[in-house]
Simulated scan of single mutants.
Amino acid sequence: MTFKSILTHIDIDARPDHRFTFALNLADRFDAELACISAAQPFFMIEPSIGPTSGTKIMREELEAIETRQRDLHEQIMQHAPFRNHVSWQTKAADPATFVVENARAADLVVLFDVEKGQALDYRRTVNIGDVLLAAGRPVLLPSASQSSPDARTIVVAWKDTKELRRTIVDAMPLLTSAEDVAVLAIEEGQGVDEKALTDTVRFLTRHSVRARSIVEPRQTGDIGMAIIDVAHRLKADLIVAGAYGHSRFREWVFGGVTRTLLQNNTINRLLSN
C-alpha cells in the first residue's frame, strides 16, 4: 500500500511557497500525483440598502479578485514545478471545505495547512479542517508550523481501542511501514489500559512489517492531547497518528478532546482520520 494521489488546498490568502514545497516533496517521496486546488467565496453579502444593480457589480468585482489571485497562485506554484506532469491545478469560487471533500474522492491523502500568522480564520477563504475530517473519508495530514517535510522516522500512534484509530492506522500504513520506530502510545485513564487490545494492535502492525512497540504512560492532570504531544516531543517524533472525533464534534467543541487539541497545536505533524 502506498499514496499514489495526494491532494492539497492552497488558501487564497496564504503564501504558497512553503505549502507547495511540503506537498511536492511528499508526492516525490511516494512517486504520487499531486493535485493542488484553491477555492474561496466572496465576502460580499447583499444588504437591503444596496440596490440589485450595485450588489451584482460588487459581487462580480469580488469574484474577479478571487480569480486574479488564483491565477497568481498558479503562476507561483508552476515556478517550482514547471516540467512536472504529475502536478495539477484546479480552482473554483466555492466553499473551500466542500471543494476539498469533492476532490478527495480521487486522492489517497489530503494535506491541509493551518492558517498563517496574520491570516484571518475565515472559512470562506480557508478550509474548515474539522468539516473535511468528518466528510472526506480520507486521511488528513496537517503539517507542523515549520512545514518541514516529515521524515517520519519516529511516529507516535495515539492509541485508543476505537474504530477511528483502526481506520487511521490502515490509512497511515505507507508512513508507518517506512518508519524506524513506531510507538503505540496508551495514556492510562480511570479504567486503566486494555493490555490485550494494545498488544493486538502492536501485533497487527508487526505483521505489516512495521517496527512497532507499545508505551503506557500514566495520565497526569491536564489534557490527554497535550500528554500525547509531550511524549511525541520527548521521543523526538515528527508525526502523530490519531483517530479523529471519537466523541461527537459538538462535545469536543464544548468540553475539549484529543482531536481539538491536535488540531490547535501545530508544533508537530499530525495525521488524522475519521
Rank of each mutant, 00 (worst) to 15 (best):
V127D: 05
I228H: 06
S146E: 11
P16N: 05
T68F: 02
E252F: 09
T261I: 09
I224S: 10
T126I: 14
V182M: 14
T168S: 10
A27T: 01
L133G: 00
D13Y: 00
V258I: 15
L26P: 00
T8L: 04
L263Y: 10
A135G: 04
D151E: 14
V202C: 14
T91S: 12
I46V: 12
R29V: 00
P139A: 10
K196N: 12
L121F: 06
D13M: 03
Q147R: 14
T162G: 04
L112R: 03
G51T: 08
A227P: 05
P42I: 05
E61W: 03
A212S: 15
L235W: 02
V111T: 03
L134V: 12
T221I: 09
K236R: 15
Q41T: 07
V111K: 01
F3L: 07
G130R: 06
Q147W: 06
D31G: 09
E64D: 13
S49F: 08
R138W: 08
T53R: 10
L263M: 14
L175A: 10
A35N: 04
R125N: 10
P150N: 02
Q90D: 13
A145L: 11
L34C: 02
A186R: 09
G222K: 10
A186Q: 11
D131H: 12
A186P: 11
V184Q: 10
R60M: 10
I58R: 07
L165S: 07
I10A: 02
L133N: 01
T199D: 15
E64F: 03
A35I: 00
G256P: 06
R19V: 01
